[in-house]
Design a binder for these strands. Structure first.
Length: 659
RNA sequence: GCCGGUGUAGCUCAGUCGGUUAGAGCGACGGUCUCAUAAUCCGUAGGUCGCAGGUUCGAAUCCUGCCGCCGGCACCA
């Protein structure tokens, strides 16, 4: 009986339609699944959507839908995306289903019974958009993530006693050094743990769209308790064919941004409930677009669908797994994508297949010949490639594994040129056995490379399989025992056809940009969002999202703010803080004021001395890094950028009021 | 500021328990073959191995300092 292997992708939040970041994770998971299957496991792969929360409530409202309707639309987009890509998903989980709610409530109950849940209250500044409390913020402060104004919220919450698990979690991570990979991520987890843990608020009363707690009151679960539990609810009560329970998961594949929740919260929840913990966590890096972080606000998100249309799903899989070292950040660009397509797939694999099959047809009437020797020159390189590729894939190092396979492809190309079968064919009888060996070797390399590539290029592998005329179904092929010499002489090959027609770089890139603009517009319509202008081909969108305009105020309200012209008398860096400068500013008072401003990344202290600036003079004093700050400097704050100080074109006297 | 990582040819990277002329793939340029998807194959391209010191007979490889970049934390807006 096969051992089971249960792996998961994260569940994706339905505030956004699928983009290539989602695709990257899910493709990797699919490749892992196929690889594990070929190693003899019964594999279950789940993915799904995270649908609750205030952000969805509001997005739905803006789109004129109920939250459920809204979630339905986006969830369907994800499902379709994985279908178009041909991903082998066993279960698509949605947090808005009753089955899931039941498991979440049960997990809560277990934690409650064990004494790890208590009721408390919390007051703080809350950002609705990002659904997070902003620690240390004052009323009206903007959200650090999005810049939108925060709201003061007090609520009674249920708390999870995370602090009680610090030691157990540390011990767990010490004893399971492979639990979190790559290692650099593990170090982060340990560092975070050692700083100490505070209890976690796991419920909200401000949200309606969520799973109710099985207690009195209007509490619904807050994101992590709800979302993480999907990993369990997806396979609730299920076993493998052999009767082995699917939980615990063998691998959670995640992005690095959600590491902490998976490496700390999730094990703690499970420990509290007395349930088995997952076996492994792998945090992959981000896909950067031409070395910039992809984000909605930068407008440089890329979708997979245009790529599938122009090049196909397999080339996208190949690119993502070959170009990016799994676990590290990687750069995505259309140029690199098309480059890889032409050089590796068209000229490499595709051409080897084409020339090999064509020669067998021309010189041997389409029948795989019997090699004259048992150990042709390519036999050992092939064995080495099998061993390196399998080992690399096993540690999820796809790029290295693919390198090894392409090394074999190159060796075959080189061997073919050295042997020049087209010459052997003209030499008649005396070269006959030699030609047999050459043709067999080429076909055998093709068969071995194809077998190794099944997890990465499933569609292409199947096409080659048929073209080679392999008698057994490709689904039944395993990696166990894969070796040189298993291709049977006498086999009649199938119909050759080009696998990856070469494309013109510029034409392909233009087409990709055009389809991308259409896809982006389509997604915006789907989510009921105002349509963004399509990006100019190749242009990097730099405009950020317009921050919402604050509530209207009266002239009297404005009059409360005392803005003054000030002259910077001195400026120095604040020790121990990257962004802070300590200034003394003359605004016409007896003594210059001490003001601490977060502009050190944008301005050198010496640049500021003698400069006239605008000061909010009647702001409540506050201590920053132990230094008294009596006021605030007015600056344009660019999202994700450096602040730019307000100033005057004409000369103005110090102390003048702005109104 | 603290912690971790990283900086090698135009691009993506390999190479570090110190040791001959520092490597691969892609791209570029030149050439070759003709089975093949104007593919393959061969050759060329001269990179202060971030910078500066140090240890050593000898350092990309060890040590120290500095700089850049990335991540986490702190901090701020």
């Amino acid at each position: 009986m096969k051992p089971k292997y249960y792996l998961t992708t994260p569940i994706y939040y339905v505030n956004a339609a699928p983009h290539i970041g989602h695709t990257y994770t899910t493709i990797a998971a699919d490749a892992i699944k196929r690889f594990k299957q070929m190693q003899g496991y019964e594999v279950v792969l789940t993915t799904g959507t995270d649908e609750h929360g205030q952000k969805i409530e509001r997005a739905a409202e803006a789109a004129g839908k109920t939250p459920q309707q809204f979630a339905d639309v986006v969830a369907e987009e994800f499902r379709k995306q994985w279908e178009i890509l041909g991903l082998s998903i066993d279960r698509f989980s949605r947090t808005s289903t009753p089955e899931h709610a039941e498991v979440v409530q049960r997990l809560f109950q277990l934690c409650l019974n064990a004494g790890y849940i208590y009721k408390g209250s919390y007051t703080g500044q809350y950002c609705v958009f990002d659904e997070l409390y902003v620690s240390d913020a004052k009323p009206g402060d903007p959200c650090p993530e999005c810049g939108r104004p925060t709201e003061t919220v007090t609520e009674e919450n249920y708390f999870f006693k995370l602090s009680a698990f610090q030691q157990r979690l540390e011990e767990f991570h010490e004893k399971n050094p492979d639990f979190v990979q790559p290692e650099t991520r593990r170090n982060e987890v340990l560092a975070f743990l050692r700083k100490g843990l505070t209890d976690l608020s796991i419920s909200r009363t401000t949200i309606k769209w969520g799973i109710p707690l099985p207690v009195a009151g209007n509490h619904v679960f807050y994101v992590w308790f709800d979302a993480l539990t999907t990993y369990m609810s997806a396979v609730e009560g299920q076993t493998s064919t052999a009767g082995e329970p699917l939980w615990p998961a063998d691998l959670h594949l995640i992005g690095k941004e959600i590491l902490r929740f998976h490496a700390i919260y999730w094990p703690a929840f499970l420990m509290a409930a007395g349930l088995p913990l997952p076996k492994k966590l792998f945090a992959h890096g981000w896909l950067l677009f031409e070395n910039e972080k992809m984000s909605k606000s930068r407008g440089n998100l890329v979708r997979a669908t245009p790529i599938i249309k122009v090049l196909g799903a397999d080339p996208l899989r190949y690119f993502l797994l070959r170009e990016v070292v799994f676990g590290q950040d990687g750069s995505f660009s259309y140029d690199a994508l098309v480059g890889r397509y032409n050089s590796d797939l068209a000229n490499g694999l595709g051409n080897l297949s084409s020339r090999t099959l064509s020669m067998i047809r021309q010189y041997r009437q389409g029948v795989v010949p019997q090699p004259a020797i048992a150990e042709p020159p390519l036999a050992q390189p092939a064995r080495d490639a099998i061993s390196s590729a399998v080992q690399a894939f096993d540690r999820l190092d796809f790029s290295r594994g693919l390198e090894a396979i392409w090394g074999l492809i190159s060796a075959a190309d080189k061997y073919i040129v050295e042997q020049a079968p087209w010459k052997l064919a003209k030499q008649g009888e005396e070269a006959r056995t030699q030609l047999d060996t050459v043709l067999y070797s080429a076909a055998e390399v093709l068969r071995i490379a194809t077998t190794l590539l099944i997890p990465i290029l499933p569609q292409t592998a199947e096409r080659i399989w048929l073209q080679l005329g392999m008698p057994d179904a490709i689904d039944s092929v395993t990696l166990q025992g894969l070796d040189w010499g298993q291709l049977l002489p006498g086999q009649r090959i199938g119909e050759p056809a080009a696998l990856f027609p070469r494309v013109d770089l510029q034409e392909a890139v233009d087409k990709l940009w055009q389809l991308e603009a259409e896809e982006k517009a389509y997604q915006a319509r789907l989510l009921g969002q105002p349509e963004a202008p399509p990006p100019a081909p190749g242009a990097k969108a730099e405009e950020g999202v317009m921050q919402p305009i604050a509530e209207p105020i009266s002239i009297d309200d404005f009059g409360k703010v005392d803005l003054r012209v000030g002259l910077v008398k001195s400026a120095e860096r604040v020790k121990g803080a990257d962004k802070l400068l300590h200034l003394y500013v003359d605004i016409g008072e007896a003594q210059p004021r001490s003001i601490v401003a977060g502009i050190a990344l944008a301005y050198q202290p010496e640049q500021l001395v003698g400069r006239k600036v605008v000061i909010v003079a009647n702001l409540q004093p506050r201590k920053l890094r132990g230094i008294e700050s009596n006021g605030m400097i007015v600056a344009a704050s660019l999202e994700g950028g450096k602040p730019v100080l307000a100033g005057f074109l004409e000369d103005v006297p110090v102390g003048a009021r702005l109104k």
